[in-house]
């Protein structure tokens, strides 16, 4: 068992447990914290996968911005306490079915992965993935998507402002 694998298993366990915590927690604040934990472990996984830039962006965008926004809204609405008993919508069959279908999906993915496990080795060429390299990609082949994304973000900002404006 290599050191890398050891670290991976540890992080994977933390990530999975955090995800399960997200699914089961009674409080929205705890759910958000579990999600932050999950994001952080994924950030470390990015480091292992030769993506340090993305790892840092992951922390600053997801943990530093998106989840803060979530927490902010949860606290603003005072909506942290989640509804206890199942509402009377009569969807009792829904949860087991969802879990069952989800498990089925996982089985399908697992089947594919296990039949192909380790068949393709990691490329021996190690690409540089620092800010410079990412920037060259962004302003090179991906210039158009990049600009489109900026428009998207602008639209999202305007949308959010319009939606929440007090009339």
């Amino acid at each position: 068992m290599t050191f890398d694998l050891f670290v991976f298993i540890g992080l994977a366990l933390i990530g999975i447990l955090a995800a399960i915590g997200l699914l089961t927690s009674r409080s929205a604040i705890y759910a958000a914290l579990f999600l932050i934990l999950n994001f952080s472990t994924v950030a470390v996984l990015y480091l292992m996968l030769n993506a340090p830039f993305l790892a840092v962006i992951q922390v600053s965008v997801y943990a530093g911005a998106i989840m803060v926004l979530f927490l902010f809204v949860i606290m603003l609405l005072g909506a942290e306490r989640l509804a206890g008993p199942e509402a009377k919508t009569g969807l009792l069959w829904q949860r087991p079915l969802a879990v069952g279908l989800g498990a089925l999906l996982l089985l399908q993915a697992g089947y594919v992965l296990i039949t192909r496990f380790g068949q393709t080795a990691v490329s021996t060429t190690v690409v540089k993935s620092g800010p410079l390299d990412i920037g060259l990609m962004l302003f090179g082949p991906y210039l158009l998507p990049f600009e489109v994304t900026s428009v998207l973000l602008l639209v999202a900002i305007v949308g959010a402002v319009v939606l929440t404006r007090n009339k």
Partner: peptide, 22 residues
Amino acid sequence: GLVRSYGLMMLFGVVVIVAYFL
């Protein structure tokens, strides 16, 4: 009118399609 049940149907579709491809 329940978003979750729509989502469930979508998931069902995904599972069936993936099964078909497999």
